[in-house]
Structures are given as structure tokens and as C-alpha cells.
């Protein structure tokens, strides 16, 4: 039998901030964990990490202790209420935000050594800084989150274009977040897909949408995971669809 070589790594990215990367990451991870998958989430927004805040936890060790201390990535992993494991990062530390290439390589090497998870999700920061691009490069698949704002569409497109031009990536999954219904999500996807086909010459993969839900802001305030608090909601249903799509993605790195 063929040995399973390492964990499947995906990155959740967007270009624009505030489109719901961390929201998607935590709920997707919870959903997959509930389905019995072993999931690890790494907070890769190194300068302004906030998964810990969204989950209401206060980790004693973070990625900072790995990069500037003598800890291994394994040492900082903690179990979360969502049923998935988390590598928390620090917030407000300048050196972390502008990590040197060599330091990123150290994290990358350790990440690749962690091979006992079904899935590792890298929650990147906003923007197209070198740190964000490097984490996207580590991942076997990049998931780009968009919502119905024009700037989110243009930023997502810019991210796809940069990853394509700099690293020859030609495979991106799209999630439409905070949309009215399935049709709108598909509409937004088709638009960016058409533009990608026209200008870059390749198609994007649609992973699904997450419907707007008034309960979300409230549960974020309560530091809860919506998927957990309302497992029968339409939102939870949306995440189950996305989770299936994600696990069906090929591990191949298409270049």
C-alpha cells in the first residue's frame, strides 16, 4: 500500500481583510472535526492573530515561541472547543509581521514534519505580503474567500494573479461568504471565474457559499463557533457542503 505522505495542507486567504477568512477557517475546521477528521488550524496572520480571540482562549505559547524561542511547532498546539487543534500566533509583535524568509522556512519545515493530521488549514492574514504568499505556497491548495463587495472581488483576483505569476499556481478554490443565497454565491464565483479564464487562462474551483446569518455577529461577540451553537442551521449546512468539496480537492500541486 502507498504510504500517506504528510498531511493535506490548505490555506484560506483573500487579499482583502474582513471578508471572513478566520470565520470560514474556524467553522470549516469544526465541521471537519465533527465528521471525524483530524484537523489542525495554524493562525498564520502573524502580526495580528485573532483565532484565539474568536475562540475565547488565551494560549500561553504561540508561534512566536517557535520562531524566536526554542519550541517546536508541536509544543504550541492546543486543543480547542471546536474539536480541532490550533497553532496560535501572537498579536502586535512587529518582528512577527515581517518575518524573514529563513524564519518562514523554519516554520514550513516543521509544518511538513507534522504528518499525523488529515488536514492542516493555514489561516493567512490579509494583503499580499511575502509572509502571506509564502504560506499560500506551502499549502497544496489555496482557498480564496470572497464576499459581495467589489473590493473583495478585485483583491481576490489580485491574489490569484500574484500567486499565478510569482509561483505559477493555477489551482484555487473559491468560497463566497456572507451572500443572500446559493444563486448569488454562484453568480459571484462565475464572474471571477470568467475573468480568470479570460485574462489568466485557467478556471477556478467553486467550493460553495456561506449564507448571510444574523446569528453570526452575535456568536462572534460571545466568542462561540456558529457551527457549534447552531448545528442544524443553514449556515452549518453550507459548511458541510464546503467541507465535502475541500476533502475532494486533489492533493496535487498544479503548476
Amino acid at each position: 500500500m502507498k504510504e500517506k505522505p504528510g498531511s493535506f495542507i490548505i490555506s484560506v486567504t483573500s487579499g482583502k481583510g474582513g471578508v471572513g477568512k478566520t470565520f470560514i477557517t474556524t467553522n470549516l475546521a469544526t465541521c471537519l472535526a465533527k465528521e471525524g477528521k483530524k484537523v489542525l488550524v495554524a493562525d498564520c496572520d502573524l502580526g495580528l492573530a485573532n483565532i484565539d480571540i474568536m475562540l475565547g482562549i488565551n494560549p500561553s505559547l504561540t508561534l512566536k515561541d517557535v520562531v524566536f524561542g526554542d519550541k517546536h511547532l508541536r509544543d504550541v498546539i492546543i486543543r480547542t472547543s471546536g474539536g480541532f487543534d490550533l497553532i496560535p500566533a501572537s498579536s502586535g509583535i512587529r518582528e512577527m509581521a515581517q518575518l524573514l524568509f529563513e524564519k518562514i522556512q523554519v516554520i514550513k519545515k516543521m509544518l511538513l514534519e507534522i504528518d499525523d493530521y488529515d488536514l492542516i488549514i493555514l489561516d493567512t492574514g490579509a494583503g499580499i505580503s511575502e509572509v502571506v504568499l509564502q504560506f499560500n505556497l506551502i499549502a497544496h491548495q489555496n482557498i480564496v474567500v470572497i464576499n459581495r463587495e467589489l473590493t473583495s472581488l478585485t483583491d481576490a483576483y489580485a491574489m490569484v494573479k500574484v500567486m499565478y505569476q510569482v509561483f505559477s499556481r493555477q489551482s484555487f478554490g473559491i468560497i463566497a461568504n456572507n451572500v443572500c443565497d446559493e444563486k448569488e454565491g454562484l453568480g459571484i464565483y462565475k464572474n471571477i471565474d470568467n475573468i480568470s479564464k479570460r485574462f489568466l487562462g485557467f478556471s477556478l474551483d467553486y467550493l460553495g457559499h456561506v449564507q448571510q446569518d444574523n446569528a453570526v455577529p452575535k456568536s462572534i461577540l460571545r466568542q462561540e463557533i456558529p457551527f457549534l451553537t447552531a448545528p442544524r442551521s443553514r449556515l452549518a449546512d453550507n459548511f458541510c457542503t464546503i467541507a465535502r468539496q475541500v476533502m475532494n480537492l486533489p492533493k496535487n500541486r498544479k503548476v
Partner: peptide
């Protein structure tokens, strides 16, 4: 900046793709 800028043409295409969305909803 070894990647090319998002061109005006691309921006316009994105904007036009966006318009029907905002008009409908």
C-alpha cells in the same frame, strides 16, 4: 513587483461583473 499590476482592463471587467450583482440584489 515581479508580478504585473492588475490592469485597467481587468479592473473594468471586474467592475462590470459586479454591477449586475448590485442591481439585482
Amino acid at each position: 513587483s515581479s508580478s504585473e499590476e492588475v490592469s485597467r482592463e481587468e479592473k473594468e471587467a471586474l467592475f462590470q461583473a459586479f454591477m449586475p450583482l448590485t442591481n439585482k440584489k
